[in-house]
């Protein structure tokens, strides 16, 4: 299976679940910002969760099916369309060779993930196919996709991927009437982000902590795969100690020298010296990944046991979804 990029859109990169074995050499995790959508797209075509997918940012991208395809997409940045036919998300879609597919605007979010049966065939760099543009490695030649790029799948399909393909194979665009209901895994209130107090939580004054949990914070223009600048009430410190640079991780919220706030995302540095106020619950990082500059969010405090329980629940739910897809094609 092969596609050719006609229009890459704002930023389209190859991502998987990221690389964590080289953190001690300061190689960031990278990987899909919205790992939940990426995993659901993979599951829908019978892949394992870690196969490489395309991460599209917003819409305005376009590609051509150079062969028959079995794809799936998930996320909130765009809706896939063939002429005027809307392709439904979160399920496998068979597309015959020669079809032209456009990504059109979906105002609810910013990132969309497209998986192909077998996964996109690219070399592993440091144990992952994820693109890290800053250092120019991973994905396709360490860069974002551009017009003319051809991407092929890994030929060897899993037995479930093969079954899905055989089942949907037709002369026309074809898909099942079921989907993997991503919305059911997400909280109803997508603007409320759950956080656990970070190690330097008590370095900040009482009023700042009250503000942090009551006032909306707005995603700033200077926001990208490395981190988001959050605009809102200034956070003041009572403890003025210097923090020695130490490990940080996607989801860490740092308070910079002037009291402003940075939420670290997938491509963030692995160490930082700014005090940390909170850590976003891993289950809410997919919500953060879909935020756009100008969006307002609120922080809600949970404890570390709750964060861990939510994480384990989410993982169990995702395992059940894999089983559910397999049952459809037994």
């Amino acid at each position: 299976m092969q596609i050719r990029i006609v229009k890459p859109g704002l930023l389209s990169t190859i991502q998987d679940m990221g690389r964590d074995l080289y953190l001690s050499q300061a190689v960031p995790v990278s990987g899909a910002m919205d790992s939940l959508s990426a995993r659901i797209a993979n599951k829908a075509v019978g892949n394992t969760d870690n196969e490489a997918v395309i991460e599209f940012t917003y819409a305005d991208a376009e590609f051509i099916a150079e062969t028959d395809l079995l794809i799936a997409y998930a996320g909130d940045g765009a809706i896939l369309k063939v002429v005027d036919q809307k392709l439904p998300p979160e399920r496998p879609i068979y597309i015959p060779a020669g079809t032209n597919i456009k990504l059109t605007n979906n105002p609810t979010g910013s990132r969309t993930y497209m998986a192909i049966a077998g996964g996109w065939d690219l070399p592993d760099v440091l144990g992952s196919k994820s693109t890290f543009i800053t250092a120019g490695f991973g994905g396709l030649e360490g860069r974002s996709l551009k017009a003319g790029d051809q991407l092929t799948n890994i030929d060897k399909l899993s037995s479930i991927a093969q079954k899905i393909f055989d089942n949907l194979n037709a002369e026309h665009i074809n898909y099942p009437n079921w989907s993997i209901p991503r919305q059911l895994l997400l909280p109803a209130d997508r603007k409320s982000i759950r956080v656990v107090a970070a190690n330097e939580f008590d370095w900040f004054d009482k009023q700042s902590i009250v503000d942090f949990f009551t006032i909306p914070y707005v995603i700033g223009q200077r926001s990208n795969r490395m981190g988001y600048h959050l605009e809102g009430a200034i956070i003041n410190r009572v403890k003025k100690d210097e923090l020695l640079s130490t490990a940080v991780t996607p989801g860490t919220i740092q308070i910079t020298g002037n009291g402003s706030m940075v939420l670290l995302m997938a491509d963030c540095q692995i160490t930082g010296g700014y005090p940390r106020i909170a850590q976003v619950a891993a289950v809410d990082m997919p919500l953060c990944a879909q935020l756009k500059p100008g969006d307002a969010i609120y922080f809600k405090q949970i404890n570390r046991d709750e964060a861990e329980m939510l994480y384990l629940e989410r993982e169990r739910d995702l395992q059940r979804l894999t089983t559910a897809v397999q049952y459809k094609f037994l």
Partner: peptide, 21 residues
């Protein structure tokens, strides 16, 4: 156990929660 990140005064230990639990 997955990996560690040594820093000036800290050692951070990364793990897979599913395996740990």
């Amino acid at each position: 156990f997955c990996t560690t990140v040594p820093a000036y005064a800290t050692l951070t230990v990364f793990f897979d929660p599913l395996a740990v639990i």
